[in-house]
Design a protein around this nucleic acid. Structure first.
Lengths: 263, 263
DNA sequence: GACCATTTGTGCGTATGTATT
DNA sequence: TAATACATACGCACAAATGGT
């Protein structure tokens, strides 16, 4: 292994009981994208400067040009770099320095995000819905849902990304028995095991003072500014299958997207 | 030429003066993506059904699998199809209405928003960029930009939507003399008058305490929770043409979007 | 449960085209 | 013009997930 990368994703390498090295790493191009993004965010490559050429990156990471291009494509989709043939790859205006960034424009990116991070479930219960949550889910007051509560972490990081509360419709309760150890997104788990397919997701972003429960989970002061994401996963009939709520400390989170012309 | 595709893109084939066929076609994978998208929209592949496998498409279009995958990646990014390893490529639920999906977050939607609301400009000045703004625009500290500051209103509403600060590159200053009375988005004004075209927009959403200037404009207390939008309008070379910053009072604003499968 | 064929995902090598410097 | 750098496109191999036997 001549490569400089050490994959630190949650589903990373693990030595097997019998002593063999059964690596379940994430794909090379994703590791490289993460590495480069981290370096950009750390300021190793200032905004407006050029990234090394594809060939240089091939040498550095000891991979093929295809793999480098896949990694750079990912960064391009996230708005981190802009590429011009003949010229090179530039750190895009507005690339973050020392800030967490998450750009999620599709279900697939959401899934990727779930894979790249870890959901530490602190509580898994059936609960009766009260007025404040009833409006958000939405669900009738007094109806019973499965609630998962906890924090989401980025590997290696000392601070959690956000506090999370997920409300899952009761009919999926049986599929959540091993949610604590299962990998990936909750919605993906449910889709696979129930066979019911999510038709769409509606995402709402708003700013609010951190509510007490979320603050407690994150060990922050209640009332601190936070960015709240509510995602409703909706079935074909338009009813919510599950709803997730995420509170991000304001100073650590930016939601970024690229807008393009036309359809 | 054994291929079935006829490229109908604007930069399509052209016969040279000397009679030879010097094709300046668009890339193969884009032609294939267009062809497949047209067929999906025409109903040749019903929503929920499976697309032919990659290998079948290779045979049909007489191209390599690599090219087919690039085409399918494009369709995935447009939310037209959803792919699953081991299973196949499915026509995404709601595929034909994908225009509506992107309408939530395209430049056009922004333009519509600008038309539906009014920008009350309280200040229009050339300013020297200080450190805090330099990072956001981004621009060198001490460089000169045109700054517009004010509030945005919804017609007939009693409360402003947000406080806005727009920084425009100095080379467009001449186009802004009547900005106070002009309708529509500032970026649109500049695009039409300068002829320079915006290549892309990167939008960032974050939560922060309302800064003093914005609070003053909105007549709110500084430090109140707010949702901040930063939009960087970037030219073909990757440099910012203008950057707008918008602070929305937290309790009055929710950013909502739909996420679809495929990218 | 094991096994297998199918299908997409990842990764490599190579060659050529085209825009930029 | 020449060199550089990204874009497109061919080929191959194997891995991983799926769905059936």
């Amino acid at each position: 292994m001549n490569r400089e990368i050490m994959d630190l994703a949650p589903n990373s390498a693990a030595s097997e009981p019998d002593g063999t090295f059964e690596t379940t790493e994430s794909p090379l191009y994703q590791q490289i994208a993460r590495t480069l993004q981290a370096e950009i965010e750390a300021g190793d490559f200032p905004v407006g400067s050029m990234l090394p050429t594809e060939n240089e990156l091939c040498t550095r990471f000891d991979v093929s040009r295809h793999t480098i291009r896949d990694a750079l494509r990912v960064l391009g989709e996230r708005g981190m770099v802009s590429r011009r043939r003949g010229s090179g790859t530039m750190i895009a205006a507005g690339a973050p320095s020392s800030r967490y960034v998450q750009a999620m424009r599709s279900l697939e990116e959401l899934t990727q995000y779930a894979h790249d991070t870890q959901f530490e479930i602190q509580r898994l219960d059936k609960v009766s819905i009260e007025a404040d949550m009833a409006e958000l889910i939405p669900a009738p007051v007094g109806s019973t849902w499965v609630m998962l509560e906890g924090r989401r972490w980025r590997p290696q990081s000392l601070d959690p990304i956000c506090a999370t509360a997920v409300f899952v419709h009761l009919r999926f309760a049986e599929h959540l028995h091993d949610a604590r150890t299962a990998k990936g997104a909750i919605y993906d788990l449910i889709e696979r095991r129930s066979g019911e397919r999510i038709a769409e997701v509606v995402q709402e972003i708003s700013a609010e003072r951190m509510p007490r429960r979320a603050a407690k989970v994150l060990r922050l002061r209640a009332g601190a500014p936070s960015l709240r994401f509510v995602r409703r996963y909706i079935d074909a009939s338009g009813s919510p299958m599950l709803t997730s709520m995420n509170w991000h400390p304001a100073e650590h989170f930016v939601y970024r997207m690229r807008l393009k012309r036309g359809g």
